[in-house]
């Protein structure tokens, strides 16, 4: 079975590198984007199984990207990457049907397990 693709969007290249290593260790293949436009582009061409999306980015920010993704695909798991666990923006993200959150300072291995679960649910859903 081919590795599932995950699109990770963050303007912080070091963070992208770390999360790429972590995801690959969890048997995912990783595509990265460093801004909103690149993210939309790669979302269309690469057909990822899930998207991890930084909310604070220069230019088109995470919320705009989420909005665009939801216009074409309402089911794909999209996780919001944030430094905080209790922000106003969270509520907004929820409004656009984000699947969950990845808090940067939390244990990433545990966060990725949540992502795996979400992908599983979404694929089960697709299968039916």
């Amino acid at each position: 079975m081919a590795k599932r693709k995950i699109l990770v969007v963050d303007d912080e290249i070091d963070f992208l590198e770390m999360i790429r290593l972590r995801l690959e260790a969890n048997n995912y293949s990783v595509i990265t984007a460093m801004d909103g436009n690149e993210a939309i582009e790669k979302f269309k061409t690469e057909n990822p199984a899930a998207v991890l999306l930084d909310i604070l980015m220069p230019g088109m920010d995470g919320l705009d990207v989420l909005k665009k993704i939801r216009q074409t695909n309402s089911k794909i798991p999209v996780f919001i990457i944030t430094a905080f666990s209790n922000e106003e923006r969270f509520k907004l993200a929820n409004k656009f049907n984000a699947s969950g959150f990845i808090v940067k300072t939390n244990d990433l291995q545990r966060e990725i397990q949540n992502i795996t679960t979400a992908i599983g649910i979404s694929e089960d859903f697709k299968g039916r």
Binding site: E12, D14, F15, M18, I19, L21, R22, A25, L56, A83, F84, K104, T105, D107, L108, Q109
Partner: peptide, 24 residues
């Protein structure tokens, strides 16, 4: 400041975790 501090902190932490988890 706390937002700016968190990002490098999370990167450092994840780097250490990756090595500790023997991924490399």
């Amino acid at each position: 400041v706390s937002h700016e501090l968190r990002t490098p902190l999370s990167i450092t932490k994840e780097g250490i975790s990756l090595v500790l988890d023997k991924i490399p």
